[in-house]
Design a protein around this nucleic acid. Sequence first.
DNA 1: GTGGTCTAGACCACA
DNA 2: GTGGTCTAGACCACA
Lengths: 120, 120, 120, 120
Amino acid sequence: MQFNENTPIYLQIVRAIKEKIALGELASGDKFPSVRDIASEFRVNPNTVSRSTQILEQEGIIYSKRGIGSFIVEDDKMIGDMRNQMAKDHCQSFIKNMDRLGFSRQEALEILTEVYDGKH
Amino acid sequence: MQFNENTPIYLQIVRAIKEKIALGELASGDKFPSVRDIASEFRVNPNTVSRSTQILEQEGIIYSKRGIGSFIVEDDKMIGDMRNQMAKDHCQSFIKNMDRLGFSRQEALEILTEVYDGKH
Amino acid sequence: MQFNENTPIYLQIVRAIKEKIALGELASGDKFPSVRDIASEFRVNPNTVSRSTQILEQEGIIYSKRGIGSFIVEDDKMIGDMRNQMAKDHCQSFIKNMDRLGFSRQEALEILTEVYDGKH
Amino acid sequence: MQFNENTPIYLQIVRAIKEKIALGELASGDKFPSVRDIASEFRVNPNTVSRSTQILEQEGIIYSKRGIGSFIVEDDKMIGDMRNQMAKDHCQSFIKNMDRLGFSRQEALEILTEVYDGKH
DNA sequence: GTGGTCTAGACCACA
DNA sequence: GTGGTCTAGACCACA
């Protein structure tokens, strides 16, 4: 057991941006905010944000036009896939957690349903 | 959005211990490992572990006898409740995450089912 | 009979602060003195005070805002309840003490009345 | 405000013995247990107990016969007075505590009555 | 500056 | 040995 293997900030930012894109808050084809803007929004160092945008670019979610800035990819399928992948990741975590507590698939789904029902 | 609100080590230890109890690896009524043993197992300072065990005691999961050691409570219902509460907490997180991605309850359950089925 | 189960400093501080709040010396909604200020007032280590304020926070009597400080809860009912609880605790101790000396309720009340009347 | 001015053990023992005498567990005229017996009963150092018995002797509650041991005074009035004095001391503490919380005599008595009533 | 976390190390009562 | 308390001092995120 190791402690304090915390998710680094640049990955937390990657996820936060992906969520905005997934929800259309940052729309397909739009200009992507500048590193400086993101840095001031999240109150972090611009270098940290650069690291995040590099990852987003590697994953093909944004691309940069030299001298103009970055843009969100105009590929709705890709963005949809990304959103689905994020959802699956959350599912994997959920399953792993319930498993570690010894809950079977059926039990996990029952409890989840209860919690959904208790949420109005 | 705030970053680096890292779960402190003492709470990570609390959770790790609760999981062991929930699964019966540490059984009801058993002697609980000493603060110093846990500290050396997890390579942390005994004071940090002490903080964890005091939380577990506040929550009624263990109790300590001065000069002897700590023990896991002999109350299977309480331990069952604890396990259920941990499960519900994981459900809440899951729901919150899927919600933030814009997935409805039905969609979330479908994706979860797919992932359970191993379609990934 | 056990001796020297001394009330720890951090609990003595909790009580001292509660009394100040109960009496309105620290008023509802006010900024709460900083951990370091209390520590130097009471000549104890800041960590000790921190432990006290965390208890007060758990009990819902103060709340802290990261980077700003702690505040007394703006809930006069809660503060009134706290004051009543403290009073009841003193009553419990009194009753227990008189009981241990073999005084009935009526006898205890008679003596208490005498002492209130200043016949001593 | 000073902390940790804890009642020293020898005074805690004085009070414990007085309570036993007040209740007749140690009867008027009886032989008083030896310093060693008391020390082992309370698990403290015999020197500490000596200090306690000296106080009891000064207060005229026990007396020693050279070579034989100590005895509880055969003076029921004195013992009754002692018991009353202890009761009054508890009353004084109670009044001081309720006063510090800002409760008037009448309020204090009302709350005390409630707590007595809630005690069955 | 503010509260929160963690460590190293000491001392204590109890068994 | 066991848990509990306290200190000194460091570092952190947040404002």
